[in-house]
């Protein structure tokens, strides 16, 4: 394991310090916590958006703090959901009285920790709503299981819920906008190499020189199957197919596309994938209105990428276009 770190136990704290020093005009750290909030939080008369989760997904989540996006991001240990006491600090710090909206990815840990904080906040009289993001089609959907994971589609939720809140949307309206994103967003990812949690010292799985792991999440977990590596177009086709086949009817629709790098994949390769996605969608009569290529939701130094499609309507397009000024997301 080669990492640019000091002590594995200090990684999250030192990272947050480094972020706060990098963006002193945009964010501040709530002392003694792993929470970063907008410098000017709470923002008067605005529903506040709080996201977060384990660390290791940078620029998620703190990189999305800023006007038009998040009011706070709560960082857990590497790949470990933050604890309720941290989440409640975030909620308290950003609530302006208009209520707080939680963006939660569908992992048992995130759901439980955020919901416990929500219960505590509600007990204090703060209005809280939430959405659970589960865009990953690699995992079968079934009401008897944990359900699907939330991955890169979460960034679209940040953007659209954030824009809705910035536009003066009520807590209920923000929730509806976020739920529309979740209902219309599907993703799938692939890994070419694993990643290593600093404290663990070795990766969760190994891949041969000619193998890739398909249906990967963002926590270094094994994917849903292992295959021989293929040309970029074939890999993109496989992921895209699964995304398109899923329950959202993308036929003749307008979509926003995200080609998200998982950490170690050169941007050049992401653009090669983007090229294929665009040509394939255009063949199918699906119209791409917005494209995002880059590292938005990573998995430490994992090589690989995910493809996300979000079916958009007029309102969603407007909210996507609305101004946003977070360190990792500008419009």
């Amino acid at each position: 394991m080669k990492k640019v770190i000091n002590n594995p136990d200090d990684v999250v704290r030192e990272m947050l310090e480094g972020m706060t020093l990098a963006y002193p005009e945009q964010v501040r750290n709530l002392e003694g916590t792993t929470v970063l909030v907008r410098k000017d939080a709470p923002v008067d008369n605005k529903v506040a958006i709080v996201s977060g989760g384990g660390s290791g997904h940078e620029p998620a989540h703190a990189g999305y703090i800023g006007p038009g996006m998040l009011d706070a991001a709560v960082a857990g240990e590497m790949f470990t959901s933050p604890t309720p006491d941290q989440v409640i600090e975030a909620i308290r710090a950003v609530d302006s009285g208009q209520g707080v909206f939680l963006v939660i990815k569908n992992y048992t840990g995130d759901v439980m920790n955020f919901e416990m904080a929500r219960e505590m906040a509600e007990a204090e009289g703060i209005s809280v709503e939430q959405v659970i993001v589960n865009d990953d089609v690699a995992v079968e959907d079934s009401s008897f299981t944990t359900g699907r994971r939330g991955i890169a589609g979460t960034v679209f939720v940040h953007k659209i819920a954030g824009a809705k809140a910035a536009a003066g949307g009520s807590l209920k309206e923000v929730k509806e906008a976020a739920e529309k994103v979740v209902a219309n967003t599907r993703s799938m990812g692939v890994a070419l190499s694993p990643c290593t949690i600093p404290g663990a010292g070795k990766p969760n799985f190994q891949l041969e020189d000619d193998e890739m792991e398909v249906g990967i999440g963002i926590h270094g977990e094994p994917g849903t199957k292992r295959e021989k590596i293929a040309p970029a177009d074939d890999i993109a086709e496989e992921l895209l197919q699964k995304v398109l086949e899923d329950s959202v009817d993308f036929d003749k629709s307008e979509v926003a596309v995200m080609v998200n790098g998982l950490g170690a994949t050169p941007e050049s390769e992401l653009f090669i994938v983007n090229r294929y996605v665009h040509s394939k969608l255009s063949e199918k009569g699906i119209n791409v209105t917005h494209t995002f290529v880059g590292e938005y939701m990573t998995s430490l130094e994992m090589a690989g990428f995910s493809i996300t499609l979000m079916k958009v309507d007029e309102e969603m397009k407007q909210l996507l276009d609305a101004e946003a000024a977070a360190p990792a997301f500008h419009r």
């Binding site: 240990e77 969760n204 977990e221």
Partner: peptide
């Protein structure tokens, strides 16, 4: 514990419990 979690989870259970 971490190894068990690496096989079917995200490999942090030993770290979490120990902390």
């Amino acid at each position: 514990l971490t190894e068990l979690d690496q096989a079917i989870g995200d490999g942090d259970h030993g770290l979490n419990m120990s902390r």
